[in-house]
Amino acid sequence: MHNFELVKPTTIADAVAALSGEDAQALGGGQTLIPTMKQRLAAPTTLVSTTGISEMQGVCVDDAGRVCIGGATTHATVAAEAAAHYPGLAALAGGIGDPAVRNRGTIGGSLANNDPSACYPSAALGSGATIVTNSREIAADDFFQGMFETALEEGEIITEVKFPVPQASNYQKFLQPASRFALVGVFVARYADGVRVAVTGASESGVFRWSEAEAALSDSFAASAIGGLSVPADGMIGDLHGTPEYRAHLIGVMTGRAVAAAG
């Protein structure tokens, strides 16, 4: 790994200032970035750690009843502290990777990375969450822009994520056992004004909403409601773990399971 300078700001303002330098990059839990730097696929000259910024830590509920999670909050903290407010989200966080990964990895790092097989993007998109950065608020529907692509500008950091809490929700992850990421994962959330279904792990364009299933489930929230639907294999990921057809099939299966589990 190439060497760099590590800076540890304690405020968002200081972090943003440090990130304005050339080749500076944010460091969350490092669970993706450090392995990437070891492979020399990233070689920042300055790393700006978010973990010491207290205004980016923790879980709370705002006046609108949304669950608000600081951008540097670890998966383990979300699993523990969001459980009382948004159990479907807490369960998703508690199933990411393994305990040591969850003790370091952060929600901001995961959403910024937008790995096509990551879990959190499906919760953010499936909840219609708002991604708050140091400079603006971005709707989840506008945030994810394809594999590893997001609406974030250079030097912009995720400071908070606001999740409207659904009446019922569930995440079903078909585990890729070697990586512990999702081979296919489906997040289903039922709101008073309709159902949202977000799919991760499957598409070459990253996380997406399955609108036909959303319409069918908004009419009738039962696994049988999507029985006749299928997703075309076109544009699905094909690799040694599964063909595009297999992933397309799994989307239906995992959606059905998520609906049944959400109740």
Partner: peptide, 15 residues
Amino acid sequence: GAAVKSCTLFALEAD
């Protein structure tokens, strides 16, 4: 007190 992978944490982060 938290279990972490020491190969995926910089020494300076544990200052």
